[in-house]
């Protein structure tokens, strides 16, 4: 009666039922649907756009800024200490006479570098660890997850402070150390998703084709955790910036010769009572702005991916 070919290849999802009617028009298109979803999140979500814009601006400020705005951040200028904002020093100077504006630019570089690098390490390690733990399950899972439990039980800051007493921290070392402990959260999340995904029927279908574990993990499980991965990676950047700022503030980060936002605040806090607000608040605002911006993006992405999960 009805040639199956007569079926329209409608783009509309489902059978048009009210409950499952998709709330966004799924446009057929080229490329990976996860990438499209991320792009669409940015187009549709104002907060995500604001977040991205802030990050671009701050990155430009830190890396291009010093090319345009030349300041000396090496030799203290004891003739002009603790100056308030004025024409020659737009944001004033600190107790060593360093120009605050220029110092903010240099000081932000490490935050941004560490943030991205740590998120990259944490995500890659976390994906592999979590996927293996979740996929193989049983004893492997129990052992790997107990290791995560142990690591979770010792707050990071304590470990870092200890490590900083043994090793002289450099940027590279900080990245490695932070990366080594930041994979815990992605690992747990990816494991959870893997546990849920591995019983999905499309994974079982691979088995009936004679496909092996590697194909299942790399072709099916990991691509399907992309949503979670992208979201946690974003939050990881925010977290790394936060931890770094805390370590610098406590004085256990990079050596004092290298300016950072955290150490600027620690330096300036002594003078807060004297009303030298410019030595504390600009750095503080930049830290919070950076972290908020990444959190905005992470949140927006999470929302989009959750909507997608519900539609699945």
């Amino acid at each position: 009666m009805t040639g199956p070919a007569a079926l329209p290849l409608s783009g509309g999802p489902g059978t048009g039922s009210v409950g499952t009617t998709s709330t966004d028009a799924d446009q057929p298109g080229v490329g990976n649907s996860a990438v499209r979803l991320i792009l669409r999140t940015f187009v549709e979500n104002k907060l995500a756009i604001i977040g991205a814009a802030v990050i671009v601006l701050i990155t430009a400020f830190c890396f291009i800024g010093p090319q345009v705005y030349h300041t000396d951040q090496v030799d203290p200028n004891l003739l002009s200490t603790n100056l308030g904002p004025r024409g020659s020093y737009l944001l004033g100077t600190d107790n060593n006479g360093f120009d605050i504006l220029g110092r903010l630019m240099i000081g932000g570089q490490s935050s941004i570098e560490v943030g991205f690098a740590v998120a990259a390490i944490a995500t890659v390690v976390g994906i592999l660890y979590g996927a293996i733990s979740g996929f193989f399950g049983k004893a492997v899972d129990v052992v790997l997850m107990r290791v995560v439990d142990v690591a979770f039980s010792i707050p990071l800051v304590f470990l870092f402070i200890f490590a900083s007493r043994i090793f002289q921290p450099t940027l590279g070392l900080l990245i490695v150390l932070l990366g080594l402990v930041s994979w815990l959260v992605p690992a747990r999340l990816v494991r959870g998703e893997t546990l849920a995904l591995k019983v999905r029927e499309y994974v079982q279908a691979v088995r009936t084709m004679g496909g092996g574990s590697a194909r299942i993990i790399f072709r099916h499980l990991i691509p399907n955790t992309m949503g979670t991965i992208v979201v946690t990676a974003t939050f990881q950047v925010a977290n790394a910036v936060l931890i770094l700022a805390t370590l610098q503030y406590l004085g256990f980060g990079l050596p004092p010769s290298e300016p950072t936002w955290g150490s600027m605040i620690a330096n300036g806090i002594t003078y807060l009572q004297d009303g030298y607000w410019w030595e504390v608040y600009p750095a503080l605002v930049l830290i919070v702005l950076t972290v908020v911006a990444f959190n905005f993006i992470g949140d927006a992405l999470q929302d989009s991916f959750q909507v997608r999960l519900r539609q699945r």
Partner: peptide, 23 residues
């Protein structure tokens, strides 16, 4: 077994979970 099971295929109940959404 990997080779032999190619002759035994399965069609699943749930049209939403039987196809990898990322492929």
């Amino acid at each position: 077994l990997r080779t032999v099971r190619r002759g035994l295929q399965i069609m699943f109940q749930d049209p939403y979970s039987s196809l990898d959404p990322r492929m």
